[in-house]
């Protein structure tokens, strides 16, 4: 299990935000990408999630001898980011059940309740997402990302809008991810640098 970046370059129009990033990340490792606003942290994470094509270079996941491009690796990725949104009209459980269904997972109600409890939303499963505070909505994003026990976790601004207990949740999630695979975290919060085995500074 590993993630390989080879000469990743990202352009926005005439502006080059990332020039030729290369590295290898193995299972059990966490990479923290740090840098000021606009330094290309989120873009790099979007490239790793297959949500954006790099202007040059490649990102490849290797798992069990097979290689996957980010575009075809949705099933091994968990992604949390400020620009990730779930369905406001649906309840928390309905959201999770929908994403489990399209991923082909059979989740019982009890399993979903456990997951919600894990992210600190116990008892709120049947409330519509529209009634959630922004911190609660952010917690639900963690439930969405962890739903399928992904070997790769991509966290963009992991604690934004979260309270202290939310920060503890992130700490737990990252610690557990070390035993399951790898994680890449983009942040500009200096306290979060400690999560990383490597720190990649951009900008």
């Amino acid at each position: 299990m590993q993630l390989e970046l080879a000469n990743i370059t990202i352009d926005y129009g005439p502006r080059r935000v990332l020039a030729g990033a290369s590295l290898t990340l193995r299972a059990g490792q966490v990479l923290v990408v740090a840098g000021a606003n606009g330094s290309g942290k989120s873009s790099l994470l979007r490239v790793l999630a297959g949500l954006q094509r790099p202007s040059a270079g490649t990102a490849t996941y290797e798992l069990g001898g097979a290689r996957y491009q980010p575009e075809d690796a949705g099933w091994l990725l968990g992604w949390v980011a400020p620009d990730l949104q779930l369905y406001r009209e649906l309840t928390a459980v309905e959201n999770l059940r929908f994403f489990a269904d399209v991923r082909g997972l059979r989740k019982t109600r009890a399993e979903l309740a456990t997951l919600l409890e894990e992210v600190g939303l116990a008892g709120r499963g049947d409330d519509a997402l529209a009634t959630f505070s922004s911190g609660m909505a952010y917690r639900l994003k963690y439930a969405y990302a962890l739903l399928h026990d992904p070997p790769v976790l991509l966290l963009d601004e992991p604690t934004v809008t979260l309270d202290e207990r939310g920060a503890a949740l992130v700490e737990r999630v990252v610690a557990r991810q070390r035993t399951r695979g790898l994680a890449v975290i983009a942040t500009n919060d200096s306290r979060e640098l400690r999560y990383g085995d490597y720190v990649l500074r951009l900008g």
């Binding site: 352009d11 129009g13 005439p14 502006r15 080059r16 202007s55």
Partner: peptide, 10 residues
């Protein structure tokens, strides 16, 4: 031209 601008700046 756009490519050049990206690589070498304006």
């Amino acid at each position: 031209l756009a490519q050049r601008e990206r690589t070498y700046g304006f």
